[in-house]
Write a protein that binds this DNA or RNA. Structure first.
Length: 258
DNA sequence: AATATGCTCAACCGCCCACTA
DNA sequence: ATAGTGGGCGGTTGAGCATAT
């Protein structure tokens, strides 16, 4: 009922094939209809799992790598202000996910907080981000768009990336993605995270098979699920035009060596 | 070199809320 | 008005890697 936990849904780390499939179906249908995408893609995953993978890993607007000092300070400020509202905090840091910030806080910030409770260490790398900066700079981060969870006008960084830049973020992040930008990048296959490579079906070394797509359940599930001809024709045209799927490389992935 | 410990982060879980029929 | 459903969120876990002993 609630979870609609289908039997045999895959769990655990995503494979390259799964990522490719997900990216392509998000490309086709957008990043809202997760349950639909999970079903029609043939991925044996829940919609939730697909959404999480996209939001936290595959989304082209994501940054990778260490938090910058500005981001660290912002996280500290916003956490002092909002507490563990990670998604809310993440909206103030374009390219960072709530999960990433949450993890970061757990590993870094809490440690720093504990250190602060002890006698002050002059070598603390975080001494510049002490509570004084929190209290003096919060005016820059007044939230005017996120008063309630999932309010109708609320947007996340991966939706628009446009309206909530602070001064710090503008300095640090000049490449704020709009949704149009994101899709344009996908279209042009020129994103940092996802780089189209070649027709993966034609390469023996990277030849990927899609048993789910080829299985009878693929077609039968489509027939039962689809009630929108437009959706159906989207996939049909993709297959017909040999556009689907494109391949990509991750800058870092669990299944790549670097 | 082997083992222990700590750290990072992807992924899952369960709850809650908004939307819709 | 309300029950069903999907999506979003915060909390938590655990595998894999790095570092220390």
């Amino acid at each position: 009922m609630k979870m609609m936990q289908e039997e045999g849904n895959r769990k655990g780390p995503w494979t390259e094939q799964e990522d490719i499939l997900l990216v392509n179906f998000v490309h086709l249908f957008g990043d809202r209809r997760w349950d639909f995408i999970a079903k029609v893609s043939g991925l044996n995953r829940t919609g939730k799992s697909c959404r999480l993978r996209w939001v936290n890993y595959l989304h082209p607007g994501l940054k990778r790598g260490k938090m910058t000092p500005q981001e660290e300070r912002l996280v500290l400020e916003l956490h002092a202000k909002w507490g563990n509202r990670w998604s809310k905090i993440a909206r103030k840091l374009p390219g960072r996910t709530d999960n990433e910030i949450k993890n970061y806080w757990r590993t870094h910030m809490r440690k720093k907080a504990q250190e602060k409770k002890r006698p002050v260490s002059p070598t603390s790398s975080f001494s510049n981000c002490s509570s004084s900066s929190v209290t003096t700079t919060t005016t820059n981060t007044q939230d005017t768009s996120c008063h309630s969870r999932k309010s109708s006008g609320e947007v996340s960084f991966y939706d628009t990336g446009g309206s909530r830049s602070t001064r710090e973020m503008n300095q640090e992040n000049e490449d704020v993605y709009s949704l149009d930008d994101i899709w344009r990048e996908i279209d042009h296959s020129a994103v940092n995270i996802i780089k189209p490579v070649k027709d993966i079906y034609s390469e023996q070394s990277h030849c990927l098979s899609y048993p789910n797509l080829a299985s009878p359940s693929w077609e039968s599930s489509l027939d039962s699920i689809w009630n929108m001809d437009a959706d159906k024709s989207k996939i049909s045209s993709y297959f017909a035009n040999d556009q689907f799927p494109f391949c990509f490389q991750h800058s870092r992935s669990p299944w790549s060596s670097g």
